[in-house]
Design a protein around this nucleic acid. Structure first.
Length: 839
RNA sequence: GCCCUCGUGGUGAAAUGGUAGACACAAAGGACUUAAAAUCCUUGCCCGCAAGGGAGUGACAGUUCGAGUCUGUCCGAGGGCACCA
């Protein structure tokens, strides 16, 4: 018998699926399942990470579809962004052409994987057909008050000449250019995401199908803290509002500290020593770690603030480098005894340190009257007048009510989450549909004027923003009044594009509005979203914000959370290779060298820079799509990293052939004598395999499901010669192949078409598990003596304890172990274990 | 510094508190072959021809008849946040 030609069946069934495709329609009788993988950036070619991501999604989509769900499984392109602009500049191409070409290549590659994607729903964010709706959404959001304009310090990337969001700054460097980021003050557009801070935090609790890890990361990112604001009066009449989460330590306050950007500091801007201080502060390090570890320094304003609870006590007011203007109120009171930063600061400037918490468990912080380090643990209040003896929680409550009674402050909640800066000074993005009028006002473009198209004749080689530099593009008129106006030349952060594409997929061809409420309400939320954990915070948080923004004041939409289930898959890793000069070698290059002459590094995520990449296309050409898909899932749990190995794929390919051979053998098996007992056992065993595979797919343990398929296939092979009617054998094989279908669709279709004939395709349903066959009449019971395994016994199911004991004691090894000993206790767990405890 | 996750053979990994190492890769030995490839079988730490026994899931304690699994402390690796008051 011959091997199957994998390249041929790949082509054959991909064409077949194309002809027999069945686009999902709204069908209220059928349960829907929206399966979505994070859409790719069209960088040129697909990489193994895409293969893994989309294979996981495809297994689920095909499985759900076979189970009778109405499955939506679309794909699109996150096609705006800087690489297109950079590549276009280097190769003197139009970003649009470069992007289109990449999309065409990558689409063909994805199709060669045999994914069950409905390409009729394809969208691309750089298409006018997409971004015009995004502009309409932007205007809606503006009208809902969710778009605001603020002048702020921004992270300026001097290489890419663009503003970066905080999240795009990694260790003080631009996330793409790796250039050291500078601070610059600019007027920017923001989405008012902080309006939803509390909701975004609270609703995490409803996301039961998300990994806890991701929820925790979002929780920390939003960073809620409960505290209170207190007004301090400065001698001379001014007031400073501070924020603290430890109002209970107010009697330990020995100074105030302000941010350099605090409004009160404006009056010092002419003082030379202040400017000098400001300059040194801004020069301190660039990486976040350096900032965090920088020495605490301050500037004495000379002001004295009145302590709100201690008569006639004043405390000095400093400007300090460790106070941030954009958290809380940009001012704090310092309590050196119970906050390490304040402690360091107080030591440096020889400020008073007053202990107000007596630790529950003795520490050496406060011994010998010489306070060593800050204590921030549990304890009771001391040196605090009316708060004395209360614990921290009680003291907080008491002092807040006192503050509120005196009307010098109130309980407040602070969030770490800041508004989302969305302006980018780049060309290849969605133009922000706003215009500037002569009187200085800024208004949205009339919706009837949309889209605001990107011009095609731009000079990408000039520095700065190409739209700003364009000769005519920014000149426009305001439709309402006919007056001349200037367009906003910034474009939107590409995170905006990906914050609603999953909504667009519900009605991707709709021309007059971004989405149709009926489709949205039917398909959303995404039942299973699959992608890399690197998007755990930003993309997901922004998408959750968008869903709420769309929901706001719109009663027709009843979806709040966009992604019901989330799965984060691991990366694809490979060993790294270097030659003796230390330059990276690709696996192919390395294989040409003598092993002793190359340095082999540990497996790391495949990356172009380390050259440890394997090209999916060439692998598909050698082994076929099924083997690649199979290998991507077989070696590790889907949420963990996987190590690429050539042997592994080769093994997957061999298994493809083994299944094919088994199928051929069964087809040519001819009829055999049957024995009822053997048949019953056979059916029961196969059913157990089918049941396990089903449960494992449901639990997303795809690697274990694959291990079970290996076992099941071996079982079939071993039973070929047994007394089993061929009709029954064919039935079991058909069921088994169907469970392989989500993993290896090409091979499975080829096998099924042989097993079931021409109309097999309409009959592909997930096998029904016969529950009655899962129950065994016999069970294997473990026999232990003093908790140690001493034997196994096969007995009738539900055997009684005394019968089991009798049988067990007859086993030689058990008898030996119990000899001369008295059994003092017996632990019996029905159908599982018997444990004899002896003296 | 704070928070989280994970430590199981040569490797990737399985294991509702109840047979540790399923399944796969690699390795060694064997079968088939003139030979090789392919395929198949066996082995996997210590004692033993074997039956069997001992040790064993990062370390040390604890809970339990029984712990890879639960609890505590420590060590190691990875990830997130990072002057957030």
């Amino acid at each position: 018998m011959n091997n199957v030609d994998v390249k041929e069946i790949d082509k054959k069934w991909q064409n077949f699926w194309l002809k027999n495709k069945d686009s999902p329609k709204i069908n209220n009788k059928k349960k829907k399942f929206y399966c979505l993988e994070m859409f790719p950036y069209p960088s040129g070619k697909i990489h193994m990470g895409h293969v893994r991501n989309y294979t996981i999604g495809d297994v689920l989509a095909r499985y759900k579809s076979m189970c009778g769900f109405n499955v939506l499984h679309p794909m699109g392109w996150d096609s705006f962004g800087m690489p297109a602009e950079n590549a276009a500049r280097e190769n003197k191409l139009d970003p649009k052409d470069w992007t289109k070409e990449n999309i065409a290549t990558m689409k063909k590659q994805l199709q060669s994987l045999g994914l069950s994607i409905d390409w009729d729903l394809e969208i691309s964010t750089c298409d006018e057909e997409y971004y015009k709706h995004q502009q309409a959404l932007f205007i809606d959001m503006y009208n809902k008050g969710l778009v605001i304009r603020k002048e702020t310090y921004v992270n300026w990337d001097p290489v890419d000449k663009t503003v970066l969001a905080n999240e795009q700054v990694i260790n003080g460097r631009g996330w793409r250019s790796n250039a050291i980021v500078e601070r610059k003050k600019l007027s920017q557009w923001f989405f008012n995401i902080s309006k939803f801070s509390n909701e975004l935090l609270e609703d995490l609790k409803t996301l039961s199908d998300w990994p806890d890890k991701v929820k925790l990361m979002q929780k920390n990112w939003i960073g809620k803290s409960v505290g209170c604001e207190i007004d301090f009066e400065i001698e001379g009449g001014q007031k400073v509002k501070i924020f603290t989460t430890r109002p209970d330590t107010i009697f330990g306050a020995t100074f105030l500290a302000l941010s350099v950007d605090h409004p009160l500091c404006k009056s010092f801007n002419e003082k030379e020593d202040f400017l000098k201080f400001k300059k040194t502060v801004s020069q301190v390090g660039t990486t976040e770690e350096a900032i965090a570890n920088a020495e605490k320094v301050g500037f004495d304003t000379g002001f004295k603030a009145k302590h709100p609870f201690i008569k006639n006590k004043t405390i000095p007011v400093y400007v300090a480098n460790f106070i941030l203007m954009d958290y809380g109120t940009g001012a704090i009171f310092g309590c050196p005894a119970h906050d390490q930063r304040d402690y360091d600061f107080a030591k440096k400037y020889k400020l008073e340190i007053i202990q107000v918490i007596k630790p529950k468990v003795d520490t050496d912080n406060f011994k010998n009257q010489n306070i060593k380090g800050a204590y921030d643990g549990e304890g009771n209040l001391v040196n605090s007048e009316f708060l004395n003896d209360l614990n921290i929680l009680e003291a907080k409550e008491r002092i807040i009510s006192e503050i509120e009674r005196k009307k010098i402050g109130k309980k407040t909640i602070s969030f770490r989450l800041k508004d989302w800066g969305i302006s980018r000074q780049r060309y290849w993005g969605c133009p922000i549909p706003m215009i500037y009028l002569k009187d200085g006002s800024v208004v949205p473009v009339e919706k009837s004027e949309l889209p605001v198209r990107l011009p095609e004749d731009v000079d990408l080689n000039s520095k700065g923003n190409p739209l700003e530099n364009h000769a005519t593009w920014k000149k426009t008129t305001y439709k309402k009044t006919g007056e001349n106006a200037i367009r906003e030349t910034d474009t939107l952060d590409t995170f905006v594009d990906s914050s609603w594409y999953f909504i667009r997929f519900c009605s991707p061809k709709l021309d007059d509005k971004p989405f149709d409420e009926k489709s949205l309400n039917y398909w959303m939320p995404v039942d299973q979203y699959i992608g890399g954990v690197e998007h755990a915070i930003l993309h997901l948080l922004y998408s959750r914000f968008f869903m709420r923004a769309i929901n706001l004041n719109d009663e027709k939409i009843n979806i709040k959370e966009p992604f019901k289930g989330l799965f984060t898959q691991g990366m694809v890793c490979h060993e790294t290779y270097k030659n003796q000069k230390g330059t990276w070698l690709s696996p192919e290059e390395a294989s040409k060298f003598d092993k002793s002459k190359i340095i082999i590094g540990p497996p790391e995520a495949m990356s172009k820079s380390k050259k440890n990449v394997i090209d999916p296309e060439s692998m598909i050409n050698i082994y076929g799509a099924d083997a690649i898909r199979w290998f991507m899932l077989s070696d590790s749990p889907p949420d963990r990293d996987i190590q690429w190995s050539n042997e592994g794929v080769a093994a997957a390919h061999k298994f493809v052939q083994r299944i094919w051979l088994l199928n051929e053998k069964i087809l040519n098996r001819g009829d055999v004598d049957s024995s009822e007992e053997v048949e019953k056992e056979f059916f029961s065993k196969v059913n157990k395999y089918l049941d396990r595979i089903t449960n494992l797919i449901e639990k997303f343990q795809l690697n274990v499901a694959i291990a079970t398929i290996y076992e099941a296939v071996r079982f079939m092979e071993e039973n070929l010669e047994k007394t089993i009617k061929n009709r029954d054998f064919l039935e079991c094989q058909t069921d088994l192949i169907k469970t392989i279908m989500p993993f290896m669709p090409h091979l499975s279709c080829e096998c099924l078409s042989k097993l079931e004939g021409n109309d097999f395709y309409s009959k592909i349903k997930w096998p029904k598990i016969k529950k009655t066959l899962l129950v065994d009449s016999n069970v294997i019971i473990v026999i232990q003596v003093n908790g140690k395994k001493r034997g196994l016994i096969s007995v009738k199911k539900d055997i009684e304890e005394k019968d089991l004991v009798q049988k067990a004691k007859k086993i030689e090894n058990i008898d030996k172990n119990l000899k001369n000993k008295k059994v003092v206790k017996q632990i019996f767990i029905r159908n599982k274990i018997i444990n004899f405890i002896t003296t």
